[in-house]
Simulated scan of single mutants.
Amino acid sequence: MYFVYVLKCSDKTYYTGITSNLDKRLNEHQSGKYFGSYTFSRRPIHLVYYAAFTDVNRAIEAEKKIKKWSKAKKEALINNEFDKLPNLAKKKFK
């Protein structure tokens, strides 16, 4: 099983990652195991979203997609506001 997850950091930013052991990885983020990582100086972190995948390639694809999303689109996902996702994906032209 593989997990794509989104963390909310103390500075109100989001971090998206992938792991095969969600509990272990969350503990690593929270404890600051990796000095210099994105979440190290933004602790405490909170898990706000995760999805499970049986296929690692699908999980990697989902992680890459979510990482490119705007903060507003990530928040719609986190809040289960799936109907908002298509609109948030549209580019706005002036």
Rank of each mutant, 00 (worst) to 15 (best):
K73E: 14
P86S: 07
Y34C: 00
I60F: 09
I78R: 05
T19P: 03
Y49W: 15
Y14P: 00
H46Q: 14
F53L: 12
D83L: 13
F35G: 01
F40A: 13
F40S: 13
T39D: 06
S10G: 00
S41F: 10
R43N: 07
Y2M: 08
R43W: 03
K68V: 00
N57G: 02
S70W: 04
I60K: 15
Q30R: 13
Y5T: 05
A59K: 10
L88E: 06
R42S: 02
V6M: 14
K8D: 01
P44Y: 06
L85Q: 12
K71Y: 12
R58Q: 15
Y49M: 02
P44G: 12
Y14H: 15
E61I: 00
N80R: 15
Y2Q: 05
K94I: 14
R42A: 04
A72H: 07
K94M: 07
F53R: 10
R43Y: 04
N87H: 13
Y14M: 13
R58T: 10
R58K: 14
S70M: 06
K71Q: 11
K67T: 05
T13G: 00
Y2E: 08
Y38P: 00
H29A: 01
E28C: 08
I45E: 09
Y49P: 00
S20W: 05
L77N: 04
I18T: 04
A62R: 14
A52D: 08
T39S: 10
R43G: 04
T54S: 14
Y38A: 09
D11Y: 04
D23G: 14
G36F: 05
K94G: 09
E75P: 06
P44H: 05
E61G: 04
Y38M: 03
A62M: 13
I78W: 04
P86C: 08
K33A: 08
I66F: 10
I66M: 10
P44N: 08
F40P: 01
Y15E: 13
Y34E: 12
Y14R: 14
Y14C: 07
K94W: 11
K68L: 08
P86D: 06
H46G: 01
K68Q: 10
A51F: 06
F3S: 09
I66H: 07
V48C: 11
K84F: 03
A72S: 14
H46P: 00
L7N: 05
N79C: 03
V48L: 11
R42N: 10
S20V: 02
G36C: 01
R25L: 07
G32I: 03
F93Y: 13
P86H: 10
K33V: 11
Y38C: 02
L85I: 15
